[in-house]
Design a binder for these strands. Structure first.
Lengths: 199, 199
DNA sequence: GTTTTGCTGTACCTATGGTATAGTAGATGC
DNA sequence: GCATCTACTATACCATAGGTACAGCAAAAC
């Protein structure tokens, strides 16, 4: 990982989150990074490789964030349901605090430009969502052992719903121009979890 | 509305839903429509105008669909909560029946390629989501009059959640490769509505 | 019978992704 | 102290895509 490579990734990420993948040209990136085209293609053999590197970095950061939030939540309460509710609140606060709203999820972006990306990018994307599914499903299973759910629901779908609500919230906030919408949607999900498990 | 114009829209829609906006070239469209480039630009002054026409058409169809589903639901039950629950089930069934899953939502696509589209496209997008918010919020207000909600929630956010869950579900289904995910997410939302309002 | 509509056909400009290749300053290895 | 490797620069070039410009033409509308 050289300094130049990291700089390219940073500039590309900013551009892509603001304008989309296609709208962010390589020449634009090289200009801002003050390197030549040759320099860019030295680090990334094509634009797909850039997307892949960016996605990997993004997923890692997001995983770290979930680790931090939910380990903190488990510190604050021994009860699995309470820990989940605290974690969701922390997540909502975090989304709320990002100035200008959540920058948008690279995972979703890559979904919506499907044929543009190669199989590797889609695979990375898939792994990320399955990882999150797994993480939350385990937590909900633990909760369900102590708190029998009030409605017959599939816990995998419930786990997926959190990812979905965040993604959907981002789309909402972008479309309606309300940066805080994403955080409020997470709180709606929290309300559902509360009603579903709380006695 | 000429026959050629409609044919362009149909071909473009199919391409965009399958591959994304940028990945669908004008030349590809004109080739399939068996017209020349001049013919294309006679109908749409640029690619943005194509996006706008497509979005308008899409929103109108989606509105019609919601009208059909929920008026049918209201036929089946006089109770506002029951009608909502029936409507959500019908919506889920509809999403489930689309062969190969939901084709993806043009509204979301246009969100994620933001700077690429002009203000008109974003405005159309915004109006659509606000229209759906309004529609569902009114329904939830009527429900709340008879069934006091079990948790203190903002009904606007609840209305937005349905749009969000559909959008998020589409992303999920595309990313994980599970066409039915979108329908199951709508059923999760239905479960929330049930727990929130049912006595 | 003239005008408008809905195109065709040709030619051309620009931006962008991508390829190729020669060269080079500085760090690293032996 | 020489060679090799790393991390680039510089130049030149190709194909594709969006877009412009404009002349022409057949059929429908007035």
């Amino acid at each position: 990982m050289t300094e130049t490579r990291t700089r390219i990734l940073d500039i590309a990420e900013r551009g892509i989150l603001a304008k989309g993948f296609e709208a962010t040209s390589i020449e634009e990136i090289t200009a801002e990074a003050e390197i030549t085209k040759g320099g860019f293609f030295y680090h990334f053999h094509d634009k797909n490789a850039l997307a892949l590197a960016l996605l990997d970095r993004y997923i890692e950061a997001e995983d770290q964030l979930f680790d931090d939030i939910f380990s903190r939540a488990e510190d604050l309460s021994d009860d699995p349901l309470q820990a989940m509710l605290i974690g969701l609140k922390l997540l909502a606060e975090l989304l709320d605090d990002i100035p200008g709203g959540h920058p948008g999820c690279l995972v979703a972006t890559s979904c919506y430009q499907s044929r543009l990306f190669n199989t590797q990018v889609h695979e990375a994307n898939r792994r990320a969502l399955l990882g999150w599914r797994n993480r939350f499903e385990t937590m909900f299973q633990t909760i369900a052992e102590t708190y029998p759910p009030k409605d017959k629901v599939n816990l995998t779908d419930l786990a997926d719903m959190l990812s979905g609500v965040v993604e959907g919230g981002i789309i909402l906030s972008k479309a309606v121009g309300d940066p805080k919408a994403s955080a409020r949607q997470v709180l709606m999900f929290r309300s559902y979890v509360k009603l579903l498990f709380q006695r």
